[in-house]
Structures are given as C-alpha cells and as structure tokens.
Amino acid sequence: MYKEMLYNDLSTFLSLHFPFKVQKISINAGFTCPNRDGSIGYGGCTYCNNQTFNPAYCHTDKSVGQQLEEGKRFFSRKYPDMKYLAYFQAYTNTYGELEELKHKYEEALTVADVVGLVIGTRPDCMPDDLLDYLEELNKRIFVLIEYGIESTDDETLKRINRGHTFAQAEEAVVRTAQRGIPVGGHVILGLPGEEREALIRQAERLSRLPLTTLKLHQLQLIKGTRMASEYEKTPELFHLYSVDEYIDLVIDYIEHLRPDLVLERFVSQSPKELLIAPDWGVKNYEFTEKVKKRMRERNAWQGKYYKP
C-alpha cells in the first residue's frame, strides 16, 4: 500500500477522522516559553523567530476567538464549506496555569466550525494535570499534541539551546500516547553538525516512538536570531542544502521511517523579508510535487528501508 501511495500524507489521515475538509488556523494565544523567561533559560532556541510562522491575523492583541474568526474569513473565500482546527502554534502553548490554558482551548472550541485542537509545545511542558484534562477533552473532540523534538542528538539540542534532552522528548511522547491522544513531532533537518548518516539514524529512532504525525523542516537562517549571527561568523560550520540536495535528503529520510507515520510536511516557508538562506523560491506545494516526482524516479516509498 505505502509503495503505491509513496508516503502516508496528512490529508489521508484527516479524512479518517472527519467526513469534510479541515484546515488549521494558527493562533498566537499570548504564551511565552520557559526557554525565554528564565525558568529553563534565556534567549530561546538559537534558530527561533516566531514572526516566521505567524500569519497576519495572528496577533496577541486579539482574542483567540477573534483570531479564529479572521482566519476563517481568510480561508472561506476559497473554501466556503471548510471546517477548522484551532492551531495553538506560537511559543509554548501548554506553559501556564491550568485554568488559563483550559479557558483558551475552550474559547477556541466555541467558535463555529472549529472541530478540533492542535497544540504545539515543548516536551518539558506537559504536566500530569494538563494531560488528565486533555485526555478527557480528546474523548469528545479531536486533539493533537505536537512536540518540538528538533533533533535526537543531545549535543545538537545543547548547541541550539533547546533546554531539554531527547530522553525528555521520548518520555513526553510516550506519556501522551498512553492517554490515547494523537501525538505529533517536529524536527529540523540540517542543523549544524548533523550530516546525512546522523539524520538517517534520527529517522530510525523517531520511528520507535508512538508518534502519529511527523513534520520535517529544512534549516533556515532567520534575521535577528543567534544562529544567524553564528553563521555570519563561522559559515563553514553550516551546510545549507540546495533544493535538489534537500529533496534527496528528505527521500532518504522517509525511506527509513515507519510506514504508518503520517508525514505532515517537508519544508517551512519563512517570510522573504526575514529569510537569510536558503532562499529556494519554491512554495510548499511545489516542493511536495518535486518530492513525489523524484520518489517515482528513484522507485522510493516511505518505509522502504525501515526495520522494525
């Protein structure tokens, strides 16, 4: 089956959960991050600038409900019958008092046509009382928890100032999956010091976790980040992939992934005014088509070299 499909995509996964089309709407709910406010560290991850993934309607001076309504208007022009998932994306969306978190999640669910939640967070920010609540919520509404894993190598995690280890990511994924909640993971391909062989091992390690979905992004150097400053001083420590190189890397990677992992995306597209490199000039859907074409040429499919 997977050979014919090439890879297990998100739209197929969502069609198993919903009898209609759904679209994620990003929300900035005003959270911060323990890696910024001093609880774990300061300055945040060296690559991070949250402006890169906040749409125009996504501002903290607007309530969760307002942002969702504006997001709906944005998408409904093209897809009037669409339903929506409220995507708590910016910073750490499980970092706060339980009642505050519940209020924001439930405000999202009062908005018409919102049929579920996707909550982005860190592996070290999932307390048991919140998991108890999310377990109950997941029994009546679709919930997906997306953890920023970024790398399976602790040296890399330390280098990019993540503030957690891979063991903590493993624990968070397992604890969440044990509650029956679908779990997503996010990783960045091409972080300094991580070559192809290390990334293939990463794919194999992630495949052993009870992840439902996985999101891949290329390393991007963004203005205003510490990583951009590092690149300016020591560019020889970075390998910035050409688009064709990265396509082959993605295919190598997914050939070693567990076949039933849902692959949500392969690239990120940052605003041009913030992006230093690599600037491929390729939209996400164009990149996906290039991956599929190259997979057919290589006779590749997800899990081709996966060993349980």
Rank of each mutant, 00 (worst) to 15 (best):
N35C: 07
C48M: 06
V173N: 00
M1Y: 10
V118T: 15
E204G: 10
G44L: 03
A172V: 06
I222C: 10
S270N: 12
Y133C: 03
Y57M: 08
R294W: 10
P278Y: 09
N299A: 09
H256I: 06
T12S: 15
T225G: 01
D260M: 04
E245Y: 09
L117S: 03
G65I: 13
K3G: 02
F238S: 07
Y87G: 07
M126N: 01
Q269L: 11
D153Q: 11
F74M: 13
I160N: 03
F88K: 01
Y84E: 15
F53T: 08
N8G: 07
Y306H: 13
D248E: 15
D9H: 14
I222V: 14
Y241G: 02
G180H: 05
N28D: 15
V114F: 04
D279N: 14
T212W: 05
V64N: 05
K102F: 01
V173C: 00
V22A: 06
Y253R: 04
G41D: 03
L117K: 01
R179M: 14
L85H: 01
S63E: 03
Q269V: 15
R175C: 06
K78P: 00
E69M: 14
A90V: 12
D248W: 04
K24C: 04
P19N: 15
Q302P: 11
G193A: 13
D128N: 12
Y87M: 13
E171I: 00
M1Q: 13
I200D: 11
I25M: 10
Q218G: 07
Q67H: 11
E70Q: 15
I251K: 05
K307A: 11
V250P: 04
E106H: 14
R294G: 07
G148K: 02
N284S: 12
G180N: 12
P259C: 15
D252C: 11
D37Y: 00
G190L: 07
S270M: 13
W280I: 02
A112I: 09
Y306D: 13
A86T: 07
E4W: 09
Y253T: 04
E136M: 11
T94H: 04
F13V: 09
A228G: 03
E195N: 13
G30V: 08
L214Y: 11
Y87K: 00
V267W: 00
K104E: 05
R201Y: 07
K104V: 01
L237S: 09
F88P: 08
W301I: 06
A167L: 15
I40A: 13
D129L: 12
I27F: 02
P123W: 06
L109M: 00
R140D: 12
L206W: 01
G44N: 04
S76F: 04
T288N: 10
G30L: 04
Y57K: 14
N161W: 10
Q89S: 12
K272E: 14
M227V: 05
S11H: 12
P235C: 09
